[in-house]
Structure formats: structure tokens, C-alpha cells
Write a protein that binds this DNA or RNA. Structure first.
Lengths: 252, 252
DNA sequence: GATCCTAGTCGTCTCCCTGACGATAAACAC
DNA sequence: GTGTTTATCGTCAGGGAGACGACTAGGATC
């Protein structure tokens, strides 16, 4: 198949975002309500077209900023600078995934600390944080009694893949700190693991593990009592990105 | 940014393949020599345009078959059926990655057992297996004294990412068996790990580990002496895809 | 055929990590 | 003060992994 510059099939390329955060004790994702056909009125992941002059990562960072106001965390940047973690997730290109035209979507995964209610996106869509469990269930009713419709397009698959990526990545990397504010306690970090994995962890063993892993946590000297109970030490994320040995997700 | 069907920027979408195999004691990748500009005469990864009616995975499987004659292994298929393992790797979309036009390439990773010399691809390019170490080195000379030019486009980055994916994935999955023929010995499997990781492993501990991991290996009853020395038991890949506990890559 | 060489397989010992869980500490609400 | 909550330290037993000795069973060599 010799190259013919006039003969390649044109595709639309978009980025879609799986933006995860932990609110109270739930793993939540950012969802926007679609204002147009197809899937009008249904919830979807935020996203948009890649512009002709921008890289995929730039496009994802731009969409993230438009939807949440978060600056993306440069992967090469040191430690926590209050930006969100952003990484490429996977690419979805089924010919029928968008009924209008051939769209290839490069999904990205963003992890952010708990944020105030999302601001309206560039296209003024309604946006909200919803527990991923609720977004992924097929039909049925949400906690508040609202009937639940599946996510638009193949976004349930994308969200599911993003959640699974997050679940496995906090095992062997320090990424769980991306869900925490700049300073956090061991207990807060433990609640992140518990929310993402959906399990209960032993506070004593967890404390021993994370404080004993070199480079994971750096004590700031301060303490806080915002969780109630005995004051807890505050930590910042250490320089380590890969945890060795990893955190172990309890058996099923 | 309201949707305007006539106003999305058109992209070309391709699949590129990182096809890895283990030959003798080296991790090798499939490279093709480019017959045209740009990068004429340079080595590159095999790949091609995605057709208007095919999925990304289909396009990758088609390219793989065209270049190697390998059937792609259906991810949902049971165990080893002599097809290659194929999975999506990552997507590369820098605006300048191809000087001719805006191309987004969805790279895939394929793992295959040692094969005879590659047959000519659909576009009759020269293809060969080359040690990844040689393909990734910047300048200098290969083992046979040939001067080495860097891979075309951003293919060095793609290959590097693919190799890293393979290195980490054989830790916690049974994917290393994808590099082996349908029946293999523990020693052959160990040589796969040694080649991919570039380390030496203790044969006794390795043997204990892989034969003790449930679902990893199934004895076929046969033995072979093709490696010399005492005859070794033959195994097939077991049903397990995730290894728990994982294989541990020795510290650096 | 005796010897060597090669690769495979089984065991043992020690160290360290982990899970289970007791105990104490330091805040707050009554 | 008493109870409640969360944090933090300690102890102990079990298991996995690295280091390494020992034995096995073929082919190659003399």
C-alpha cells in the first residue's frame, strides 16, 4: 500500500477525560450532561476535539482546565504542585462509536483532590461529580431516586478502564497522593485507598507500611485534628513515584 | 465550542506496531526499512493507515498479519492458541511527528514466539528482527559494524515505551509465555525473563516460583532435551493471566 | 565405558514483609 | 471524669524470596 497523500481516510480526533476524585468515602468522576444530539440529556465524560496545532496531552490539559480549572501536573515536575495528575489512558476508535462520523478518542485519566462543585465548562454544560459506581450501573436508580441512564457513547467502557487503571496504579506508585491536598495525614491517605479500592484497610498496618516506604511521605512537622480524634501528623508527597515494595490490594 | 460537523480538523490515523520476540538471548523487535521519504532508507516500526471501516484493534491485527503472518490472539480466547499477543500500547499525536501532515498513531504491542525471518510486508519493504538495544541506541555502530541511524519519526520513543510495557507486564501477568512456543520448559521461560529484563535469574528459585504459582504452568507430561543437559519437563501456559504473587524483577 | 559438561530439579536456611491484633495516646463531646 | 474517635507503637506468627548446597539425567569427549 504505497503512500498517497491525497488518499488517507480523514478522522476526527478527540480527547475524553476520566477525572477522578475522592469525596467523603466515594470514588467520584466528573460527568457532563449533553446538550445536543446524539445522546442529548445523557451524562458523558468531558472532552472535545483536538486542535490542529496541539499535542494530545495539551488538548487533554486544556479540556481539564476548561472543565475544572485545574492545571495539569507536568509529569516531569517535582512532587505535588497542586496540579492534577494527568496521563494518557487508551484510545477508542470503533467505527460506530459515534453515529455522526468516524471519531477516534484518546482518553486521558486525571486524578484530583476533592474540589468544590465543578464550574460550567466552556460549552456551558451542566457538570457534576458522581460516584463511579452510580455512573457505571446499568439502569436502575441512583441514591437520590433519580433513574439512571447509561453514559453516552462508549463512555462507560472508558470510565471503567480509567477506574481500573487508577485502582492498579495506586498499588505500585505514589499516585494516591494526587487525590490528597498538598498536606495530608496518613488517615486521609488511607481513606483514599479505601475509597478507590472499595475495601477497608487496617489503620495500624497501613500506617506502618506508608511511613516505612522510603520516599513516599515526608513529614511537614505540622499536625491537624480536622478528622477528629487524636491530632495526626501532616505529610507531603515524597519524591518517590514508584513504590517498592508496592501497596497490596487485599485479596477478593 | 458547539459541535459543527463541517468544522472538525481532519487527522490521519495510523497504527504502528512494536512486535517483540526473544531470539537466542536477545529481546528483538521487528523493523522495516522505509522505501520513501521522509526518513527514506531508515528503519521504522511496521504500521499503516487505519481503514475507514475497521476498528483500531482490527487494523493492528491486519498489519501484524501482513508483516509477520501471525494471527492475533483474541484477548478473550483461552490460553495459547499459537497466535501472538496483541494489545494497545499508547497513542502518539505530536503535531510535528510526521512532516507531511497531522498523523495520530495508535501504537500496539505484539509479543510473539521466535519466528523464522520475517516475510516481506504488503508494501514489499525489507523487514528484519533487530535487538531492541541496537534499535534504540543513538548513533554508533551495531554488532556487525554497520552504522546505526535512529529510528524514523518518533519510533524510538514508541519502541522504548513498548519495551517498558513488556518488561513490567511480565512481572504480574503470564504474558511471558507469549514469547514461548506452545510447549516449553521452565528453562526456556526463564530465558525469556532474562532476555526481556536483561538480568540473570537463579534457575532454582525461578523454577520453584513458576511451578508453585497456581494456574501459570500446566505440565504436558512430555519432556525434551532440546536445550542439552538433563531432559526437562514440558509445560503449556495455564489459564491464569494475572500472577499472584507477581514475579519480582531483581533490584537495579 | 569412564569422565566431564550441561541443564534441570529438590531442599534448606535466613531474612523480611505482611496480616492480625493488643495497647497506649491525644484530642473532643457530654 | 467518662466515653468516643482517631492516631500511633508494639508484638507475634506465617509465608515468600534470595542465597546456595546437593543430586539427577542426558549428551559429548576421550
Amino acid at each position: 500500500m504505497p503512500y498517497d497523500p491525497s488518499a488517507f481516510p480523514p478522522f476526527a480526533v478527540t480527547v475524553d477525560l476520566v477525572v477522578l476524585t475522592v469525596r467523603r468515602h466515594d470514588l467520584c468522576a466528573l460527568a457532563v450532561r449533553r446538550g445536543e444530539q446524539p445522546f442529548q440529556g445523557r451524562w458523558a465524560l468531558p472532552g472535545g476535539f483536538v486542535r490542529p496545532d496541539e499535542d494530545l496531552a495539551q488538548a487533554a490539559a486544556r479540556e481539564l482546565a476548561e472543565e475544572t480549572g485545574l492545571r495539569a501536573h507536568d509529569p516531569a515536575a517535582p512532587a505535588q504542585d497542586n496540579g492534577a495528575h494527568l496521563e494518557q489512558l487508551a484510545t477508542y476508535g470503533d467505527p460506530k462509536r459515534d453515529p455522526r462520523m468516524r471519531v477516534v478518542s484518546v482518553a486521558h485519566l486525571a486524578l484530583a483532590p476533592d474540589l468544590p462543585a465543578p464550574r460550567a465548562g466552556g460549552d456551558a454544560n451542566i457538570a457534576r461529580w458522581a460516584p463511579v459506581e452510580e455512573l457505571l450501573q446499568q439502569g436502575g436508580y441512583a441514591r437520590d431516586g433519580e433513574p439512571v441512564a447509561p453514559l453516552a457513547f462508549d463512555h462507560a467502557q472508558i470510565l471503567s478502564d480509567g477506574v481500573e487503571r487508577a485502582r492498579s496504579k495506586i498499588e505500585y506508585s505514589s499516585l494516591a497522593t494526587a487525590f490528597c491536598p498538598p498536606e495530608f495525614t496518613v488517615g486521609e491517605l488511607r481513606r483514599v485507598y479505601e475509597a478507590v479500592w472499595g475495601v477497608a484497610l487496617d489503620p495500624r498496618n497501613f500506617h506502618r507500611k506508608v511511613t516505612g516506604t522510603p520516599g513516599f511521605l515526608v513529614p511537614t512537622g505540622g499536625t491537624t485534628t480536622r478528622q477528629g480524634g487524636r491530632p495526626a501528623q501532616l505529610f507531603r508527597a515524597g519524591g518517590a513515584t514508584l513504590l517498592n515494595p508496592p501497596m497490596l490490594r487485599p485479596e477478593v
